[in-house]
Amino acid sequence: MLGASEMTVYRAIQAGEFPALRIRGRIVVPAKALEAMTEAAVAGHRTVDVAEWTLAAAEEVAGGRG
Rank of each mutant, 00 (worst) to 15 (best):
Y10M: 12
R24K: 13
E17I: 09
G66D: 02
A41W: 12
A57F: 03
T47C: 09
A56H: 02
L21H: 07
V48I: 12
T47R: 10
R22N: 10
L21P: 05
G66N: 05
K32I: 01
M7H: 10
W53Y: 13
T54A: 02
L2I: 14
T47A: 14
E60R: 07
A58D: 05
T54E: 03
T54K: 07
E39V: 07
G3P: 12
V61H: 05
A15Y: 09
E59K: 04
L55G: 00
R24T: 11
L2N: 15
T8L: 12
A58Y: 03
R22Q: 11
A58I: 00
I23Y: 06
V9Y: 07
V28T: 02
G66L: 08
K32L: 02
M37F: 10
A15L: 15
H45S: 08
M37L: 11
E6M: 02
M1A: 15
G64P: 06
A41Y: 03
A33C: 01
P19D: 06
T47N: 10
V61Q: 04
D49V: 13
G3V: 07
A43V: 03
V28E: 02
G44T: 04
A20S: 09
P30S: 01
G25Y: 02
M1Y: 13
A20I: 14
W53R: 05
R22P: 07
E39I: 07
R22A: 08
R24D: 08
A36P: 00
L21E: 13
G63T: 05
A58G: 04
A40M: 07
L34F: 00
T38C: 03
A57W: 01
G63N: 10
A36M: 06
M7Q: 14
T38N: 07
P30C: 05
A43W: 00
L2E: 10
Y10D: 14
I23S: 06
E6G: 12
A33K: 02
A62V: 00
L34Q: 01
A40F: 04
G3D: 08
P19F: 08
V61I: 11
E60M: 06
L34M: 11
E6D: 03
V50C: 03
V42H: 04
G25K: 04
A62Y: 07
G63R: 08
R11V: 13
G63W: 05
P19N: 09
A57E: 10
E39S: 10
A58C: 01
A36C: 01
T8E: 13
V50Y: 08
M37W: 10
A43P: 00
L21K: 11
G16Y: 12
A33H: 00
V28F: 00
T38R: 05
A58E: 06
V61M: 04
T8R: 11
A15F: 14
E52S: 11
V28K: 04
A33Q: 06
G44W: 04
R46V: 03
M37R: 00
Y10W: 14
R26S: 07
V48G: 10
L55Q: 09
W53K: 01
M7K: 14
A36F: 02
P30D: 05
A12G: 14
E6Q: 13
L21W: 14
D49S: 15
E35M: 03
A33I: 05
L34P: 01
A40R: 12
A51T: 11
A15V: 11
A62D: 06
G25E: 04
D49F: 09
G44L: 03
R26Y: 06
V42M: 06
